[in-house]
Design a protein around this nucleic acid. Structure first.
Lengths: 153, 153
DNA sequence: GTGAATGCAAAACCTTTGCAACTGG
DNA sequence: CCAGTTGCAAAGGTTTTGCATTCAC
C-alpha cells in the first residue's frame, strides 16, 4: 500500500470509467503524500482528516494545499470526491465504479460493489436526448455495527 | 397549483415512502408561503431562490426563516432536500420516490421516474446485516438543451 | 529558468444560532 | 395563554482566493 509508484498512468487505468488525464500533473511532495494517505485508507476521509495525517509526515503542509491537491486530483480523475448531504466532502482513491453505503448512525461511508451498473439505465426513464455520463448510487441505512449497538440499548 | 389545502395530512400520504409526521407542525403564514412556492415549481430551487420568490408575497420574511421552514418541512417529510456536490441544497415537494438527473452544464436538476426501485437491491451487494432505508440515485450528464447548444458552438 | 504549486491569512459562502418580539391553536 | 416561530444579526464551519515564496520539470 501507499506505494509511490502505484499512481496510475493514463495507460494503466483504461479500465476505469474516467481516464486520468495526467498530462500537466506536476508531482510535488505534497501531492504524493496526500495521494499516499488516500491510498492507505478505505474510509473516505475528509480534507481535514487527510490534512491531519499528512501533517504527521510533512508538518509544513497547509490545509489549503491539501484542498488544492484533492481538487486537482479529482479533476485529473486520480481520486473521487464523495459528498453526503451537507457534510464535508470526502475523498477516495477507489477508481473502480462503485456505489456507496452511508450509515446515518455513525456517518461511515463504505464502498459497494455493483453487479450490473451498465444495466441500470433500464430501470430509469432517462430524459430523451440527454447524454448520460454516469450513475451515482447511494444506499442509506444503518450498518451492522450500529444496528447491533442500537438493539442493546 | 399552490393550493393551500393541498398540504398532505398523515393519512393522505400513506403512499409516500416517508410518512409526514405533522403532529406538532404549526402552520404559519411563512411556512404556507414557502410550501406554496415549492409546490408551484418543479425546478428544485435552493433556499435563497425560494426566499426571493416568497419575499415577493411577504416582504418581511427573513432568509433564516426560509431555512427554518425548509428544515422543519424536511424533517416532517413534507418536502425533500436534494444535495448535489457542494452546491447549495435544493428542495422539492415531489414526495414520490424518484431519481434525479443533474446536468453539469447548466446545473439543472430534474426528476426521473423509476421503473423498479424495489428491485434495485438486486444490483448491489448491500453489506450483510445492514438495514437499508433508501436508495438515492443521481444520473449525471448533459441535458438535451445543453447538448444542442454545445453542438452549435 | 519559468510557470506552476505552496503556505499563509483573509475572504467567501451557505447555513445555523441566540435572543427578544410575536403568534397560532 | 404560551410553547413554538419569527426576524435580525452575528457566528459557525467548510472551502476558496490573493499574493509572495518556493519548487518541479
Amino acid at each position: 500500500m501507499a506505494d509511490h509508484d502505484s499512481i496510475p498512468t493514463s495507460e494503466q487505468t483504461s479500465g476505469a470509467t474516467n481516464l486520468p488525464n495526467l498530462g500537466e500533473f506536476r508531482m510535488t511532495r505534497q501531492r504524493r503524500e496526500v495521494y499516499d494517505v488516500l491510498m492507505s485508507r478505505h474510509d473516505h476521509p475528509s480534507a481535514s482528516e487527510v490534512f491531519v495525517q499528512v501533517k504527521d509526515q510533512m508538518p509544513s503542509i497547509s490545509l489549503a494545499t491539501v484542498y488544492n491537491c484533492l481538487e486537482t486530483m479529482t479533476q485529473c480523475g486520480l481520486v473521487k470526491q464523495v459528498n453526503m448531504d451537507r457534510e464535508p466532502s470526502r475523498y477516495c482513491a477507489n477508481l473502480k465504479e462503485h456505489a456507496h453505503f452511508y450509515c446515518h448512525a455513525c456517518g461511515e461511508v463504505s464502498d459497494i460493489e455493483v453487479n450490473a451498473f451498465e444495466r441500470l439505465d433500464e430501470a430509469f426513464q432517462v430524459p430523451t436526448g440527454a447524454d448520460v455520463t454516469r450513475f451515482e448510487v447511494t444506499i442509506r441505512g444503518t450498518c451492522k455495527t450500529c444496528k447491533t449497538a442500537d438493539a442493546k440499548i
